[in-house]
Structures are given as structure tokens and as C-alpha cells.
């Protein structure tokens, strides 16, 4: 946290850099949590990066030819291959440095993809790149559905959410499966660093990005990104909803460093999930029973996480 300066009157020391790698003027919706997450991540990364972006909202809003919002080197190729492209970039830079074909310069290679591009169609490429041990940071921007194509469900869509392909109907609650635990899948690859973050906690997010970028080997950062368009929530509530996700235990902020779990935000008492759910149109149809079911599940998952946090690694 101490590394950043926030915009404050000139007389006071700044907490966050004013430099923007993702230029203003991109086409993201008002209140977009993904765009904010990317902006903050970029501030933490600085200019010495190469960004590989999957197809999805962030690619579409930032790269419409003949314009670009990117002030750092950036490449988009396809939807599901981001980790593989990033692994190629990392390997290519490494061998060219070794062969004296480029000046030695530490460049952070960052792959960015949505929850669909990560936990569904891109999972294989991601697993391969993590397993091969490339020195790169993978950021999953999780807005809990395929937003770019019009709010279709993904395996990261939470139970009970209504999307265009898991619509709530007379005989359906909406999404009938529980959110895939992607950070746990990443951690199961025994990589040095896995963490969750949310732009509602900007300093926590930026600290994690810096840490992940500095670590040798693969790092995985899973960022919950509120999407007012897809979540059917007021655009001015993006930050509050993100905070509620953590305060209710729906989306805990934690790190897994070399297998060791650590909770970064651990409220003495979790707020009821309904405070989080009721602000979002995608959950509007849920009955009290369904909300109780979700509460039950969140309690269980949170307890499991706390158990992992309390484990002593020998």
C-alpha cells in the first residue's frame, strides 16, 4: 500500500500514480468493474509489461481499429488461448535474451481473460501454461458470465443468477450449478502465488498485482469484477456491491502463497448474503428458501476457507 499515491490535494503525498496505461476514452459501460480492475492492475504493473488479452469485454472496449486504448504493448489473438500465447511470449523473450538477440530487461508478461475465457474455454491452455511453469501473471476478470456476447452463463456464474442462457423461469431458478472454484483449481497446480481481489479494495488489488508480478514462476489472480450491465444493478453501486461480496463472505479476499492460505479481509462477523443479492436484478426472482440455501453454502465455503487458513504448513 505504501507504494502508491492516491489523488489527493497536491500538498499531501499521493497514494497512487496518476499515470494511466489504459487510456481514458475506452468503450466500457459506465460503472464497469472490469475496466476499473484493469486500470488499477496496470498502475501496479507499470510500463514494463506485455499484456495478452483474451477475446471478451476488455478486448472489445479497448482495441477497436483504428484506435487503441493501450499505452503498453498489448496483443489479442483468440478467446481460449491467452495463457498459451503468453507462455510463448515469455519463452520467446527468455531465449532471445539468452542468445543475446535482445537487451536483458525484465518484462512482466500478463495474460488477462474473463471468467469464460478462464474457467471454461481457456481452462486447458491455462492449466498447460501453469504446469509448464512459465514466469507470467494470469489475471481472470470474473464478472460471472459471458458479458461480451450478451450475459450468457459460464461455470463461474453463481447459483441462482439469471442469465440469458440460464434464465429464471417458471420451473427454473436460473443458474442451477454452484460457482466453479477457479482459484482452487489454479492453486492445485502448486504454483507459487494465487490470490483473489476486487477493485472495491483497490490497494489490496494493487499490492497483489505487484506481488504476483515480482514472483518468479506462474501467478494467478482472480478478480471479481462487478458488471452493472450483466448483474442488473445501478452503475453507481459497483464499488459497494464489490465490498458487499467480500463482507458477506460470497467472495473472500485471500492469498495462497506457496500453498499457504491467508485471508486478507476477515470481518469479525459476515453480513447476511441477502444484502449483496438484493441489490442485483439477476437475483431478483430468488425465494427466501433459495436465499437461505445460498447463505448455507456461503457459510460452509467460508468455514472451509478458514480451516485452510488455519492449517500450518510444515
Amino acid at each position: 500500500m505504501e507504494k502508491y499515491t492516491v489523488y489527493t490535494p497536491k500538498s499531501i503525498a499521493k497514494l497512487m500514480t496518476e499515470e494511466e496505461q489504459l487510456a481514458p476514452g475506452h468503450r466500457a459501460c459506465i460503472g464497469c468493474g472490469e475496466a476499473l480492475a484493469v486500470r488499477l492492475a496496470c498502475k501496479a504493473l507499470g510500463n514494463n509489461v506485455i499484456i495478452v488479452n483474451a477475446t471478451g469485454c476488455m478486448e472489445v472496449v479497448s482495441s477497436q481499429l483504428p484506435y487503441t486504448s493501450w499505452r503498453v504493448p498489448w496483443i489479442h489473438t483468440l478467446f481460449e488461448n491467452t495463457a498459451a500465447v503468453a507462455s510463448g511470449i515469455e519463452a520467446g523473450l527468455k531465449i532471445m535474451t539468452k542468445k543475446g538477440r535482445r537487451l536483458p530487461q525484465d518484462v512482466t508478461v500478463v495474460a488477462m481473460a474473463g471468467d469464460g475465457g478462464t474457467s471454461d474455454i481457456g481452462l486447458q491452455a491455462l492449466s498447460g501454461a501453469l504446469e509448464r511453469g512459465h514466469n507470467f501473471l494470469y489475471i481472470c476478470l470474473d464478472n460471472e458470465a459471458y458479458m461480451n456476447t450478451g450475459i450468457q452463463r459460464s461455470s463461474a456464474t453463481p447459483y441462482g443468477a439469471s442469465t440469458t442462457t440460464s434464465p429464471a423461469g417458471k420451473v427454473s431458478i436460473g443458474q442451477v450449478t454452484w460457482k466453479k472454484n477457479m482459484p482452487a483449481i489454479a492453486a492445485a497446480h502448486d504454483i507459487p502465488y494465487v490470490a483473489t481481489a476486487c477493485p472495491s479494495y483497490p490497494f489490496d488489488l494493487m499490492t497483489k498485482v505487484s506481488k504476483a508480478a515480482a514472483i518468479k514462476g506462474p501467478a494467478y489472480l482472480h478478480i471479481l469484477s462487478v458488471c452493472p450491465t450483466g448483474w442488473r444493478c445501478p452503475t453507481e453501486l459497483t464499488i459497494r456491491i464489490g465490498r458487499l461480496a467480500t463482507q458477506t463472505g460470497v467472495f473472500p479476499l485471500y492469498e495462497v502463497e506457496h500453498g499457504k492460505y491467508k485471508l486478507n479481509v476477515d470481518p469479525p462477523k459476515l453480513k447476511p448474503v441477502t444484502e449483496y443479492l438484493k441489490l442485483q436484478g439477476r437475483f431478483r426472482h430468488l425465494s427466501e428458501d433459495a436465499i437461505n440455501e445460498i447463505q448455507q453454502r456461503v457459510n460452509e465455503e467460508y468455514a472451509k476457507l478458514k480451516e485452510q487458513v488455519s492449517l500450518k504448513l510444515s
Binding site: A84, G92, I95, Q124, E131
Partner: peptide, 26 residues
């Protein structure tokens, strides 16, 4: 041969990795 051999997990990733390596000039 002074090179990296990338034993990727599929042909889709093989060609994708090649996009990355070629894009940095390797």
C-alpha cells in the same frame, strides 16, 4: 540447438504459443 522446446498441451496451444514467440521476434 540453442532454442526453447515448448511441450505444450495441445496443437491449439502449440500454434498459439507460436503466435506469442513470433510476436516478440523469435
Amino acid at each position: 540447438l540453442e532454442a526453447v522446446y515448448m511441450p505444450v498441451e495441445s496443437e491449439h496451444s502449440a500454434m498459439s504459443a507460436c503466435l506469442g514467440t513470433a510476436a516478440v521476434g523469435a
